[in-house]
Design a protein around this nucleic acid. Structure first.
Length: 900
RNA sequence: GCGGACGUGGCGAAACUGGUAGACGCAAGGGACUUAAAAUCCCUCGACGGCAACGUUGUGCGGGUUCGAGUCCCGCCGUCCGCACCA
């Protein structure tokens, strides 16, 4: 596929020595396929990436999201892990005790799906995939501490997860309760709200049904406030992720108000209806009340009203299915029930059932003030209930202010609201709250200030086999009994079958039937397993001491190694995984396993890898490997390799199996080497944006690999020993040193800020500059010892700068340059700051904001000197065209602007 | 609908807290070398004008602030992402 990878014959190389000034008899093309495994073996044998927990140096914990062992790694992994590895290698060179572990998010449904489809056991399937993917990851040359490898499906891992579940249970952080759950009829399991997307299961895509079931929950809502408040402290997280979490938690302050009901109108003599509102100030604008179709009062009313029952049934039908309907029309049904205004016993308000009121939020009932809420306005306009504005914006005449189609939700003064008139919204809210709090009905105040959250408790029950068993036993006499600590882990039985849908654990009597640990009577195990998000909520904590067989953590270690200093992963986990991990860390703190609340100090979400799509005229997708691209002028066309059939080049999209626009990391590493793949993934696009994988781009990267190798192997014999002093009087040498140290400074900044693309740009320039020095026929290196010494320093810097990105090539170069140790263990070079400030500056000169020339002037020149020099420029005189100079602005070290 | 991010050459993109717009890479064009190709090296490459040094113009559109705006402010247009009746 890429024949030039083969080393060229000496004959070819020597045929034209002038054409390639870098080549010599001994210089061959860099052979990644030979070199990379060789260095990997050396790193492995010397265990240089194993992290010692008792290392006294400052720690740095860099982590990429661990993969699901789906079978093979993909380019997204390559990008993710390449980024993390740059940080790990860089921090290691900077002298930190770097923790950079890897593991497997190994439980989950694909393993069971494979079991059903291919009659292979989930365990066997999973471990085979792990073996394959581990080999692939190793071929990338990542500086991982494999001795800490974790698979979440391993009993040595989930044992501790089970013990923590019991800790949580004791601490009231885990509980079993009846819940309305999302039931996935295809996967036959319960899904968390977060796993339901547009009314469909996130994996199966099946339409989700609502069911009432006993479920295990983690009490994440106990931390709602804290999870929200602490977001502000996460300054090294993307703003976007923090906003998403904030929205997800969804805190809102308001008032719970009990409306009296006219008992003559209620189905069973009900006397009140409680609603939650954030706008108690608009109480005098109320036109209707509305109940969720799931509200008990609605059900009661429907029992006596078939038309209402039919309406409610219709709402429920469309409820799940029709979230697709964009702006589902507001619909309501008058129950005939009448509520009484809390401030006016004679004021009756109709109570509707409305399709847009959610049972899961607040009390499942609202009062509607149409003038100041768009949803309510849409509703009354449909049912002709009218509206009364009660907030008048500044500058509007209250007498003529009317609302028609657009609700007003801005600031203003209260109107039409009796004792509230003239108040601000905030004052009116306060006044209403005060008055209603004082009033009591049946020993309870009519209203209470309340804070509501959108966040729900985390339902973790899954009716699946391939997950962490929930370690409790159900006993008819004793109820729910925790499995005794000494009996953990509750291991999954191996002898299960997948020939029927549903949970194999449920029908595995030998496993399921056990005596009660308390009373000894026949009892049975819990057959639900945990959501796999539980597994991934603490793996990064376990990495700190995965060898501890007795406890989830070792406090002396975990307290020192956490938090994760830099976490890197896809934005698709911005809410679920990160929020659950934040919860889990808090729960582990309460149960004594860690000391901190926030597990991830720095978070970075990397972009996707995207690729062109190709398809045949009949619409069939074709993989990049099956086609050939030809370029004529700036027109590109594609044809099938096998028979030359024309192929349409489609839009660039996320790599996916369905569109077949994937490239296989194995193929890329086999053809170009891991360094080329890593380099390309890091160059071009900023890491948080999508990167386009293209054949041309990879070839650009591989060209650089060869260029770098050629340059180093040509120069190496010409360089003095490392550490040779440079004659400070030699200008050319000094110029080269300046470039080297400037690059050093820039690359470090780029890596620290995770701006790998800019770091790489500087490295391209640096190599260009070095090549100019090495190649300059007018000034051979051999004739200038000072320059040769500067070049030696520059090369030693260069190789250490590329080492985090292209570690194998760097090792090869490092050895070629005569160093004994490994560059992977070499210290990061020190910047010589004095080189970065020059004696003279080139200042651009503007006239009226337009650039007209430059002056070169001493760095400490006074403004007066600069002004004189600037005004003497011909270009300035011409541009001024005889006009007098009004002002000269000198921005120190930057620019000069003459105002004419 | 709400919230957020973004909009710079043919393309991916640089540009520190307002200070030389387009670094670096890709693609393209021209040249050197070669029997030829590959590889490599050199040159050109925002637009318009000019043989040329150079000039004019140019960071989605329209205004504004400033000696100076890709960057700040106001108003539009467009793209992408997230949330979608949360009372």
């Amino acid at each position: 596929m890429w024949p030039s990878l083969r080393p060229k014959s000496a004959h070819t190389i020597c045929a034209n020595p002038l054409a390639d000034r870098h080549f010599s008899m001994t210089t061959q093309r860099y052979n990644a396929r030979e070199s990379e495994p060789r260095w990997q073996k050396i790193w492995d044998e010397r265990e240089i990436f194993a992290t010692k927990n008792d290392d006294p140096r400052d720690k740095y914990y860099v982590l990429e999201m661990f993969p699901y062992p789906s079978g093979r790694i993909h380019m997204g992994h390559v990008r993710n892990y390449a980024m993390g590895d740059v940080v790990a290698r860089y921090k290691r060179a900077k002298g930190f005790n770097v923790l950079h572990p890897m593991g497997w998010d190994a439980f989950g449904m694909p393993a069971e799906n494979a079991a059903m489809a291919n009659k292979v056991h989930p365990k066997a399937w999973t471990y085979e995939n792990i073996a394959t993917m581990k080999k692939q990851l190793k071929s990338m040359g990542l500086s991982l501490d494999w001795s800490r490898e974790i698979a979440t499906c391993d009993p040595s891992y989930y044992k501790h997860q089970q013990s923590m579940f019991l800790d949580f249970l004791k601490a009231g952080l885990a509980e079993r309760k009846l819940g309305r759950v999302n039931w996935d009829p295809v996967d036959q399991t319960v899904l968390a709200n977060e796993q339901v997307i547009d009314g469909r299961g996130w994996r199966s895509g099946a339409e989700v049904e609502q069911r009432e079931m006993m479920q295990w929950y983690f009490a994440i809502t106990k931390f709602s406030d804290d999870l929200l408040d602490q977001l502000d402290t996460l300054t090294r997280w993307p703003e976007k992720v923090r906003v998403m979490q904030q929205k997800w938690i969804g805190r809102s302050e308001g008032l719970a108000v009990r409306f009296a009901l006219d008992a003559d109108t209620t189905p069973r003599g009900e006397r009140e209806l409680e609603v939650f509102t954030t706008r108690p100030d608009t109480l005098f604008g109320a036109k209707f009340m509305a109940l969720s179709p799931d509200h008990p009062l609605a059900a009661a009313a429907a029992a006596k009203n078939p038309a209402l029952a039919e309406f409610i049934a219709a709402c429920k039908r469309s409820g799940t299915a029709a979230q697709i309907i964009e702006t589902a029309e507001k619909q309501g049904f008058d129950t005939g029930i009448r509520a009484i205004h809390p401030f006016d016993p004679s004021w009756q308000i109709p109570v509707y059932v409305a399709n847009f009121v959610l049972m899961t939020y607040g009390t499942g009932a609202i009062f509607g003030c149409p003038a100041h809420d768009q949803r309510d306005l849409d509703f009354v306009n449909k049912y002709r209930l009218g509206n009364t504005p009660v907030v008048c914006p500044e500058g509007q005449d209250p007498a003529t202010f009317v609302i028609t189609d657009t609700a007003y939700d801005g600031e203003g003064k209260m109107i039409n609201s009796r004792f509230l008139d003239g108040m601000t919204i905030a004052d009116a809210k306060e006044e209403v709250a005060k008055r209603l709090e004082r009033e009591t009905v049946g020993n309870r105040p009519v209203a209470e200030r309340q804070i509501n959250f959108r966040l729900r408790d985390w339902g973790i029950s899954r009716q699946r086999y391939w997950g962490c068993p929930i370690p409790v036993i159900h006993c008819e006499a004793c109820g729910i009994v925790p499995v005794p600590a000494a009996e953990l882990p509750v291991k999954l039985p191996d002898d299960v079958s997948f020939d029927r849908p549903g949970n194999p654990l449920l029908r595995h009597d030998a496993w399921r039937n056990v005596p009660c640990p308390t009373c000894g009577k026949p009892a049975h195990r819990e057959t639900d397993t945990m959501d796999t998000f539980v597994d991934s909520s603490w793996y990064f904590i376990r990495f700190t001491d995965p060898w501890n067989a007795d406890a989830p953590t070792t406090r002396s270690v975990v307290d020192r190694m956490l938090p994760v200093d830099q976490y890197i992963g896809g934005v698709e986990h911005a809410i679920l995984h990160l929020l659950y991990s934040r919860f889990f860390t808090r729960a582990m703190k309460i149960t004594g396993h860690v000391a901190l609340d926030e597990p991830f100090d720095g978070m970075f979400t990397q972009g996707m890898v995207v690729h062109e799509t190709y398809r045949k005229p009949n619409g069939e997708w074709v993989t990049p490997a099956e086609i050939k691209i030809t370029t004529t002028g700036d027109k590109r066309s594609a044809a099938l390799l096998s028979n030359g059939e024309a192929i349409e080049i489609g839009p660039i999209e996320k790599m996916s199996k369905s569109k077949r626009n994937t490239v296989d990391p194995d193929d890329i590493i086999e053809t170009y080497g891991a360094d080329t793949a890593r380099w390309f993934m890091l160059s071009d696009s900023p890491p948080d944006r999508d990167v386009i994988w293209s054949e041309e781009g990879v070839q650009g990267a591989t060209r650089f690999v060869q260029r770098m190798w050629r340059l180093v192997s040509t120069a190496a014999p010409l360089l003095p020993a490392p550490g040779t002093n440079v004659d400070p009087a030699n200008e050319a040498a000094k110029a080269l040193r300046t470039v080297a140290h400037q690059t050093l400074s820039d690359v470090a900044t780029g890596i620290e800020r995770l701006r790998f693309n800019t770091a790489i740009a500087k490295l391209y320039s640096f190599v260009g500059a070095l090549a100019d020095v090495v190649d300059d026929p007018k000034k051979p290196l051999a004739s200038d010892p000072a320059l040769a010494a500067a070049a030696r320093e520059a090369f030693d810097i260069l190789v250490r700068l590329i080492a985090p990105m292209m570690p194998h090539l760097a090792e090869e170069c490092w050895a070629t340059l005569g160093h004994q140790g490994l560059v992977s263990q070499a210290a990061w070079p020190e910047v010589e700051a004095a080189l970065l400030v020059s004696d003279t500056l080139t200042l651009p000169v503007q006239v009226n904001g337009k650039k007209r020339g430059d002056i070169v002037i001493g760095r400490n020149a006074s403004n007066q000197e600069i002004e004189t020099a600037v005004l003497a420029l011909d270009a300035v005189k011409t541009a001024l065209n005889g006009k007098p100079v009004r002002k000269v602005i000198v921005v120190p070290q930057r620019i000069v602007n003459v105002v004419g």
